[in-house]
């Protein structure tokens, strides 16, 4: 169940991350959520499986701490489900052709397989040291039998996605001491959609 009580995004926090707001249909109503709020509310994924979500969250957390709770999986999943021209993942700048889902899913499958082969367990059960070891190997393309796009490229893409959710928001920017200075306040339409739900 996805109840209103699970939606933790206050108006203030919503404003600070609105550039990443995502629309979910709940009981026939449009609900605007940030990636973090979508994760907190356990909104259903559209593209990624549970295993893919846990793999993505774990490896991204090891690359960019804070990205799990910032909603990296919700952000990526939402964008993968968008129409090709509407997906806002940085991969569109890096020569990726839409649809992006196969690129992500094949990469996550390769990462999962690497965890099984080296540590006999999925990413979500790796120790911090084991995760770091795999990440280091991905960065340097040192994982044998890697069956997806080059691991170092996937590392780059996932790191960029994770930086989007952690540092690419008003709160993320201000959290490292950089004033955000937005020109445009978030759309009233988004607020009314959220307030309507509440």
């Amino acid at each position: 169940m996805h109840t209103d009580k699970k939606i933790q995004a206050t108006r203030r926090s919503f404003l600070k991350t609105s550039a990443m707001a995502m629309t979910y249909m709940v009981a026939g109503k449009a609900l605007m959520l940030t990636p973090a709020a979508a994760r907190a509310a356990q909104m259903p994924m559209k593209i990624l499986s549970a295993l893919e979500v846990s793999t993505l969250e774990t490896l991204c957390e090891a690359i960019v701490p804070g990205s799990r709770s910032a909603g990296i999986a919700a952000f990526v999943d939402y964008q993968l489900a968008e129409k090709p021209g509407d997906a806002l993942l940085m991969g569109r700048y890096l020569g990726l052709e839409p649809p992006f889902a196969p690129f992500y899913q094949q990469g996550l499958a390769a990462a999962h397989q690497a965890a099984l082969e080296q540590f006999d367990r999925p990413w979500s059960q790796l120790t911090e040291t084991q995760s770091k070891s795999l990440i280091d190997q991905m960065f340097s393309d040192a994982i044998a039998n890697w069956s997806a796009a080059p691991a170092s490229f996937l590392f780059f893409v996932w790191r960029a996605d994770a930086c989007d959710v952690v540092y690419g928001t008003q709160s993320g920017s201000e959290g490292i001491g950089m004033p955000y200075m937005a020109h445009i306040a978030p759309s009233d339409k988004w607020l009314s959609a959220k307030e309507q739900q509440n």
């Binding site: 090891a62 690359i63 960019v64 701490p65 804070g66 940085m90 700048y93 770091k132 990440i135 960065f139 590392f155 780059f156 790191r159 960029a160 930086c163 989007d164 540092y167 690419g168 993320g172 920017s173 490292i176 001491g177 950089m178």
Partner: peptide, 30 residues
């Protein structure tokens, strides 16, 4: 320059990740 995106601070230093990233970002922001 902003923190993220293709021309952002973080992207230019893909060699920095894990626990080292946030301290770098805080320093670079200034």
């Amino acid at each position: 320059t902003k923190p993220n995106d293709l021309l952002g601070i973080a992207t230019g230093r893909a060699d920095i990740y894990g626990a080292a990233l946030d301290p770098f970002m805080r320093k670079a922001a200034k």
